[in-house]
Write a protein that binds this DNA or RNA. Structure first.
Lengths: 225, 225
DNA sequence: AAACTATTCAAGTGATTAGTTGATTACTAG
DNA sequence: CTAGTAATCAACTAATCACTTGAATAGTTT
């Protein structure tokens, strides 16, 4: 039964793509939208050549596609099924690899952290003005697409721009922060800092890619070409 | 940001578990239910020592658990999320890796193959006696659990025992075959052979593990201790 | 206790993989 | 055409992985 063997070897090719931490990081970043090789290499802290090689492995596994525009090559996730796969991987890793839970817990300095806010609940409460939705990702990612009505304050600028959130009529209005995904640390950080300031902050379940994949509405900034 | 790096390294551990064809084959077999190391080594065509090592990798990735009973150690999938992960992997591999499609198509000698029968539809039609559900897995797997009312004829015995299916009142009663999963070749084979004999055979969507995971009713044989 | 069985452990070999470096290709701008 | 840029390719090293072999555990049977 050579057929069977070949078939599993093909599946393993996709598995191999998931077998390296740097590639997973690239995929998580790509889940935001398309990116150039240079951008990706910076965010993952790899050389351009190395990044290029990882991207080609991902491409051969069918997980990303690329598009050349002038000098630059833009990579992007090749379909929603890939995001499902990444989420399934996360789910297994979270549930079973105790080290992950340990890492997440250690990072969450705020131990009495409330449950993250579910996506569906959020949208209507934001519409009613009950919550402020805070996008803590970098400006360019916000511009490429974000949750409707979300305020964008990148994490680094959070401390200085705190009043933009507190200035609102009600000091105790709940703030819901989100970032790149369930394991992006930006929103964790933001919630921890906001709580230190006495604000009522929570984290949104998952992040922008999951929001988009769930078919919920998104908004884009027109400010750039 | 060392935290981030560590976190992705933990995810990669699960990814690594999926990066080898033999391990994927073991997982697919384990998705049927628990198995001893010896059984697994036979089905995958590996030495016992090698199988044991693969299983321990899977265990460290949190994908399987084991239970010792007397001399034997029985391994099993550690949760439904693992089956979801395997299905997500398959989905990506199927959609993107053209080689997989090629392999599957090559194997399907019957080109005019009808759509596989959805699970939900099947159960009520079987109850009404409209279809014969055929389980082509080996006897022991059938005994460990099967779709209610299914007839068990292992693939090897299919040709000899054909009359057990044709003997029924209506020659044209539809036969729906299933096996271990969407990429197990048993049901493909069975359908192809039945059609050669002029019978009205189709393949069930997915296989037994997916059926069980979907929460649909199952039946077990009492014939063995 | 001795023989036997199922599994695991430990050590070693050849193959594969991750990452570095420097050259090369494809494209743009002057 | 030349210089410059983004990405890829090619060649290499160190690390990791798959598998084999033979020994060691743990449990059962006699």
């Amino acid at each position: 039964m050579n057929f069977k063997h070949d078939l599993f070897a093909q599946f393993a090719r996709v598995g191999k793509a998931l077998s390296n931490g740097n590639r997973l990081e690239l995929l998580e970043f790509l889940a935001q939208g398309e990116r150039s090789v240079e951008q990706l290499s910076k965010v993952a802290g790899l050389t351009v050549a190395n990044t290029s090689q990882h991207l080609q492995q991902l491409r051969h596994a069918g997980m990303v596609t690329c598009r050349k525009e002038g000098l630059k090559v833009f990579y992007s996730i090749s379909g929603d099924d890939v995001i499902n796969l990444l989420d399934a991987l996360r789910a297994v890793a979270e549930r079973h690899v105790t080290d992950v839970q340990h890492l997440v817990n250690t990072y969450l300095t705020v131990k009495d952290n409330l449950e993250p806010v579910p996506r569906t609940e959020l949208l209507e409460r934001a519409r009613d003005g009950l919550v402020i939705v805070l996008d803590v990702r970098p400006e360019e990612e916000y511009a490429a697409g974000h949750v409707p009505g979300a305020v964008n304050i990148p994490l680094q600028e959070l401390e200085q721009r705190l009043k933009e959130l507190g200035d609102q009529d009600d000091e105790n209005r709940e703030i819901v922060a989100y970032c790149r995904g369930p394991h992006c640390v930006l929103a964790f950080d933001a919630v921890a800092r906001l709580r230190e300031k006495g604000l009522n902050a929570r984290r949104m379940e998952d992040g922008y890619p999951e929001w988009k994949t769930a078919g919920l509405p998104v908004e884009k900034s027109q400010s750039r070409t």
